[in-house]
Design a binder for these strands. Structure first.
Lengths: 225, 225
DNA sequence: CCCCTACCTGAGAACCCGCTGAACCGGACG
DNA sequence: CGTCCGGTTCAGCGGGTTCTCAGGTAGGGG
């Protein structure tokens, strides 16, 4: 049972490492965000234990990037009880469970075993940007508490934009991924569908999640507009 | 495992070389900046160990130029503990790790193995010069905390200047790279666009990132002005 | 000190890109 | 067979972007 522990407080990290090793886990420790991200990407762990506050890159960012890289190792987040962030955030951002510091060692072990048993299928299914979320498995789109009905083409486009939220995606890239590599129709089709989406997810809410970057393409705001 | 060691103190360099060779590394040694830059550019090393204080060209400059030349070999910097520069600077300037002199040989070996295992760092997505930064993927330009909106052409020009920051680039080179190889229009276009950029990234901040080098071209200051 | 060249600058014209409403098409379903 | 719905195409419009041009300014050599 392989565990990756990403925790910058060296003393705490060492304590946990020794404890887990004693319980029969194989434990690797990283002390900052980037190294943690790298390790979790490169090696197959059963669970990743992620502190929120990390040098270089927050635990949130690490989890976000892991999921973006299609790494679905279960993540257990360690949140400080007085932190700015709360547990809901952690779950939103791709964590599968969380533990508030300070935590009991026994509870940690129990949660780890539970997560590992559950295995990678704990793969989170929803993509979210601010209050906008997309659930590919259920094919559902919600803005806040409202459920929004979209056609399959609209859904495919939105999902693609969500998977690249924050980045500019070109019309060509969109066509190749949402339509077909050898789609030979009019590029205008993308503009039309962007318009359909904006009508459903932006206009009614006075938001602007989908920005157009003239000459380059479109970008879905990471915060949902 | 190939290591390039750039260190001007001959005695120290020799000691390290012997030690690393004993550990099974293949070590090349250079004693000044320019030679180090050349060697690192011409040969594929797994890690480059760079002293900060070097004759001819500082370690910072070497690392900067390596990255500018799209050489992404991991760099471990050796910083003097009483130096003018601190470790943060080293990491800022493209180094992947650093070690403060005097250092333990065992630690050096450990760090080298770690760096080599990690491999070439993912080519960074953001280009930065001082507080000015350009993110090609997100197509974003920021000066300090301000986001600056630029047109495609302006962005292309700025990106090109950033990729050669610190170097003088000729108008011809600019036209060939930002416009088109067989662009036959007025070369005044470059002057016009340089002006557009200065209006957005320099004038409002009282800075002068883009210098004109009369008779030669333009240079984007490595420190952002 | 003058002149020539390189560069700067403001304004305007041409163009292209994206937006939009509407029409067309084909399949599903009653 | 008619209707509805999703997908796609089309053409006009509006405005930002790109580029040209002409005149002004500053630096450097003779």
């Amino acid at each position: 049972m392989r565990i990756l522990l990403v925790e910058d407080e060296v003393a705490l990290a060492e304590m946990v490492r020794e404890g887990l090793t004693g319980e029969g886990f194989a434990v690797d420790v990283m002390h900052n965000g980037p190294d943690g991200l790298w390790a979790a990407t490169e090696h197959p762990y059963d669970v990743v234990v992620l502190d929120i506050m990390l040098p270089g890159m927050s635990g949130y960012e690490v989890s976000r990037q892991l999921r973006a890289r299609e790494v679905w190792t279960p993540i257990l987040m360690l949140t400080a009880k007085d932190g700015d962030y709360d547990q809901a955030d952690a779950l939103d951002l791709g964590a599968d469970d969380y533990l508030t510091k300070p935590f009991s060692f026994v509870v940690l072990v129990a949660r780890l075993r539970a997560l590992a048993r559950r295995g990678a299928p704990a793969r989170p299914t929803v993509l979210s940007a601010g209050d906008l979320s997309v659930d590919p498995a259920r094919r559902r789109v919600t803005r806040g508490d409202d459920e929004i009905s979209v056609t399959s083409r609209e859904f495919a486009l939105l999902e693609f934009l969500m998977r690249h939220r924050g980045d500019v995606v070109s019309k060509t890239a969109i066509i190749e991924n949402v339509w077909d590599m050898n789609f030979d129709g009019d590029h205008n089709i993308v503009e039309v569908y962007v318009r359909y989406l904006r009508r459903k997810i932006d206009l009614p809410y006075g938001r602007a999640a989908i920005e157009t970057v003239r000459g380059s393409g479109y970008r879905l705001a990471a915060d949902g507009g």
